[in-house]
């Protein structure tokens, strides 16, 4: 091995070492100044897909016994005709953006009531709403069981458990 080759190898290796150090520093630099909020169409689509997957993963397709309610139907009020599946229980009912059943009803609170199940029975629970939640003429003070066909009155809206 000639003297010249060895010298070349020596300098080449030092160059490699410094290229590594400098590129590490440049990554640090871009980390400091180059932080961007990912809002390219591609990133948006990716995020959308991720959210979809997550929501799909969260759904537990639990086998419900025959004859059990599967959805909540709005039978009276501004949103009449709409329905929500009980698969995503517990369901939040209200006027807020995070409610699963969103009602355009001025007499409904932002987070008004909740429909939840303990496995074989369905409950409705008032979440401290302004105008209260009624079953028939009875204003709820504690979580109450509901059956198929029970009419839940919230503001000017009536909901019903359907098969």
């Amino acid at each position: 091995m000639s003297e010249l080759t060895l010298m070349l190898i020596r300098f080449a290796y030092l160059a490699i070492l410094w290229i590594f150090v400098l590129s590490a520093i440049s990554v640090v630099r871009s980390d400091m100044f180059g932080a961007r909020i990912e809002s390219t169409p591609r990133a948006d689509r990716r995020a959308e897909r991720r959210r979809e997957k997550e929501s799909r993963n969260r759904v537990k397709p639990a086998k419900r016994p025959r004859g059990a309610p599967t959805h909540v139907q709005i039978v009276e009020g501004a949103n009449e005709g709409e329905s929500a599946s009980l698969d995503h229980a517990p369901l939040l009912i209200g006027r807020g953006a995070d409610a699963a059943i969103r009602l355009d009803d001025d007499y409904v609170s932002t987070r008004h009531a909740r429909i939840a199940s303990n496995g074989d029975q369905w409950f409705v629970e008032d979440l401290g709403s302004t105008n209260g939640t009624y079953i028939g003429s009875h204003r709820l003070t504690q979580p109450t069981t509901i059956q198929l066909g029970s009419k839940i009155r919230i503001g000017k809206t009536t909901l019903e458990l359907r098969k």
Partner: peptide
Amino acid sequence: EPEQDDATQVV
């Protein structure tokens, strides 16, 4: 954030 629009009307 919960929407801060018009307050719930009282029956």
